[in-house]
């Protein structure tokens, strides 16, 4: 187990290093600069040099790269080009709140609804309940979240006035974006739980439990649901991807000051250092979640632990 974690950690660092390197050189290859080129050309050469020097852009690319890597190790992601003088780390940490709240609410809501739907669908296999759940699941993965968010904003926010249309003013501002974000999670979980539970229901230990004369509730909760839920942890990876990509568009649609909208804004502003910072932040988050998922899964399901121990 210890060796497994060690190997995984090495991969984690390697992956992050590759992402950082790729991002850095991709950004260097970008056409244009974050500065206003016309105005910059009007400045005397001396001042222009000063501006470049203040961002470390006067040094050769390799030196810039080494500096950048060194700073990341120290937890410094550089200075923003657009929000003059602000540290990228400060900008990101100032924006985490709304994103985290919406993401967390979306996961909890999606988990709750998805679990209920999945369990009902499996228990009432091949009935109207089952078909309805499958339709919801297919729609959930098929309707692009930004289309859904835009329509929800138009109808529930603007036309019917149930919720605030946009911006981050009170708690109620977070409801529509959270719901829009949760739909994909509902679909993923409902589908997965249904499949898992159908498999568990066929297992011999369920027959044994029935033969022992256990009550319905006891069989369902102690044997079926418990065993079906173990592997739900594995869908956490796709869910995180779903939430990250969803947040990029949904925060933009609802005007929420989160990391997703910051990322899209900095792409439009050519704000290299912020783009790189968020890329690394997202990647680190993703890689860490995947590691935790795998470790947790090994802990809950001993069969997996042995399998991974061998590798």
């Amino acid at each position: 187990m210890k060796r497994y974690i060690g190997v995984r950690l090495i991969y984690l660092v390697l992956t992050l290093f590759i992402i950082t390197t790729a991002t850095f050189f991709l950004m260097k290859g970008l056409p244009g600069t974050p500065f206003d080129e016309e105005k910059l050309q009007q400045l005397p050469t001396e001042q222009r040099q000063k501006i470049y020097a203040s961002y470390g852009l006067d040094k050769p690319v390799v030196t810039q790269y080494v500096n950048y890597l060194g700073n990341i190790v120290k937890g410094d992601l550089g200075t923003s080009f657009f929000y003059t003088g602000q540290k990228v780390t400060d900008i990101i940490s100032g924006r985490i709140g709304p994103s985290a709240l919406i993401g967390l609410q979306a996961v909890l809501l999606g988990l709750a609804i998805g679990l209920i739907l999945g369990i009902i669908a499996a228990y009432r296999h091949n009935t109207g309940w089952d078909y309805a759940t499958m339709i919801i699941a297919v729609l959930g993965v098929s309707v692009p979240n930004f289309v859904l968010a835009a329509l929800m904003q138009y109808y529930m926010g603007l036309k019917w006035g149930w919720f605030p249309v946009a911006f981050w003013e009170s708690y109620s501002s977070s409801i529509l974006p959270s719901v829009a974000l949760s739909v994909g999670v509902v679909a993923l979980i409902a589908r997965f739980v249904r499949t898992e539970m159908l498999e568990v229901l066929e297992q011999e230990y369920i027959t044994t439990a029935k033969a022992k004369g256990l009550g319905f509730i006891r069989i369902m909760f102690q044997h079926v649901i418990r065993n079906s839920l173990i592997s739900v942890i594995t869908v956490l990876g796709p869910i995180v991807v779903n939430l990250l990509t969803g947040s990029l568009v949904i925060e933009n649609i609802f005007g929420i000051p989160g990391i997703g909208s910051l990322f899209v804004d900095s792409i439009k502003m050519n704000d290299y250092s912020t783009i790189m910072g968020i890329t690394i932040f997202y990647s680190a988050f993703y890689v860490l979640v995947m590691l935790v998922v795998d470790l947790l899964y090994g802990l809950v399901d001993p069969r997996i632990r042995f399998a991974s121990g061998k590798e």
């Binding site: 992402i19 991709l26 970008l30 792409i267 990647s283 993703y286």
Partner: peptide
């Protein structure tokens, strides 16, 4: 492949689209 799967692909696609 193990390293590649650790990379959130949409982010890379976005960066590629930028350049």
């Amino acid at each position: 492949i193990e390293i590649l799967t650790g990379i959130p692909s949409l982010i890379i696609i976005i960066l590629l689209m930028m350049i």
